[in-house]
């Protein structure tokens, strides 16, 4: 039997009368990169919200690393090694780049309240470790010069990078990237694709990427799922999916180009 790091079975979500996700399925092998595409409002972000525990499904089952996480809280899900980034960036905007990263080290900090209060040596040891990890992540993401910068003052492309960097501070195995290249120019998006390739190797990640920029998702993903009205209408390699008549149909008139 093959092992899947993430299995989603028959996932449904309705908001009042609107069914945003209807019967979504996924079997995600470890170390893979999957792409999730589909027209605006197809339900991609909602699927991420469900998997990461931010909202609860109406029906269905989510299994991560063999554990049924369907009704877990987001912080419990992250603790098991699954994290995500946000489509509309949710940086801690009035805090510095360094602070954004430090906050995300929370899960791996063990120091208790009293040793923090009285600055026991264990507190300093742990803070030094956190700083080391921050330095390393800043290095990987080329953000060293911006360490002290307030995150909302960063150029947009760098904010996107910081969002991914911050997610990696939690030491995840599976990362859900929600439109990582949104708002970037072509050059930035190309650099980002390269960066994603690099961090995938470096941190041994499994990735699911939601993207509207086809060049990016087709270049990175091994398997692409196409979502429309909350369910998978096509799935396969980027080439297969691009030539699928149903997919072309779904994208017709939406302004998005499959290319």
């Amino acid at each position: 039997m093959t092992y899947f790091i993430l299995e989603v079975e028959d996932l449904w979500k309705s908001f009042g009368g609107l069914t945003a996700v209807s019967g979504y399925q996924l079997k995600l092998p470890p170390d893979s990169v999957y792409g999730l595409i589909g027209p605006n409002g197809a339900g991609k972000t909602t699927i991420f919200n469900l998997i990461s525990g931010i909202i609860k499904p109406t029906r269905g089952k989510i299994i991560f690393k063999g554990k049924d996480i369907t009704f877990w809280r987001p912080d419990q899900v992250v603790a098991l090694g699954l994290t995500r980034t946000f489509q509309n960036l949710r940086l801690f905007s009035s805090l510095t780049v360094e602070m954004n990263l430090k906050i995300a080290s929370h899960l791996h900090a063990r120091c208790n309240f009293w040793s923090s209060l009285f600055s026991f040596p264990s507190f300093f040891r742990e803070e030094r470790e956190i700083k080391k990890r921050v330095d390393y992540i800043l290095e990987v993401f080329d953000l060293v010069p911006y360490r002290e910068e307030v995150s909302s003052n960063l150029p947009y492309g760098l904010q996107r990078k910081l969002d991914i960097a911050r997610a990696l501070m939690t030491k995840p195995q599976l990362v859900l990237l929600d439109e990582p290249s949104a708002g970037m120019n072509t050059q930035e998006a190309e650099d980002l694709a390269e960066l994603i390739r690099r961090i995938k190797e470096e941190f041994q990640l499994t990735l699911i990427i939601v993207e509207h920029r086809m060049s990016l998702v087709m270049g990175l993903a091994e398997v692409v799922q196409v979502i429309d009205y909350g369910s998978v209408i096509a799935m396969g390699s980027p080439e297969e999916v691009q030539n699928d008549p149903q997919v072309i149909e779904a994208y017709l008139g939406t302004g998005d180009v499959v290319a």
Binding site: D75, R84, F86
Partner: peptide, 11 residues
């Protein structure tokens, strides 16, 4: 700063 982001990072 952002409760949802905080929770998604394990807090």
């Amino acid at each position: 700063e952002d409760e949802t982001a905080a929770q998604a990072l394990g807090i």
